[in-house]
Amino acid sequence: MRAYLTLVRRELGTFFVSMTGYAIIASVLLLLGFSFTDMLAKLNDDPHGAQAPMTELFYSTFYFWLILLLTAPVITMRSFAFEKWSGTYETLMTTPVSDWQVVLAKFTGTLLFYILAWLPLFGCIAVVRYFTLEPTILDPWTTASTFFGIVLFGCLYISMGCFASALTRSQIIAAMNSFVIGLGLFLLSLRRLVPAPPADWAAKVFSYISLSEHMEDFARGFVDTRHVVFYVSLTVFFLFLTLKVVESRRWK
């Protein structure tokens, strides 16, 4: 436990001792700002038509997805790849810490940073709440569930990023791999917008794995256990794969 906490601290610390962390936070803020103005424009066009909670307007902007899809590969790419490249992986793995501690610490540290980068979202929402005449369109519950959805999404994409990073020594390749896996999964969810699924069961499957549908529910304030199970189980699966990659060094 002690080693785990030390590693989490170190992992989170790496983002702040160099430019990377600040640069990532700044770009997330920029994109968040864009989607915020986008949302305000929609509200201005039709101030009384906003039946649905405002977070829904928010999630449907293009920038929002850009942040979700881009941050995870960028923040996870260095987790294992950089340590392997610089050789500190060897000093790390020859200390009495277990493989799962390392994997879990890298995941947790990165996830904490991801959450930190998303916190300004509350600022945006607070601004709207302060100036709007109808506070009902932004109740705390939908805000919380949206944020919960964002965190779950982050768990999944960060675990995929850790897996991609554990596979290689090159940060660029790690980032590309995790981006491609992530984008692939996201495009599957867009499939429902393109042609109609050939069969009933296929439609069900696609709807089950559709990330945008999940996010729609979270933004409306529905926390569906099916979605939670989907994200949690996939996160566990990718962390398990990462652990196996780390262990594979000691396979005979």
């Binding site: 002690r2 080693a3 030390t6 590693l7 790390l92 009495p96 810490v97």
Partner: peptide
């Protein structure tokens, strides 16, 4: 210090 903590 980081290394000492890692080593338990």
């Amino acid at each position: 210090k980081f290394r000492a903590r890692l080593k338990g």
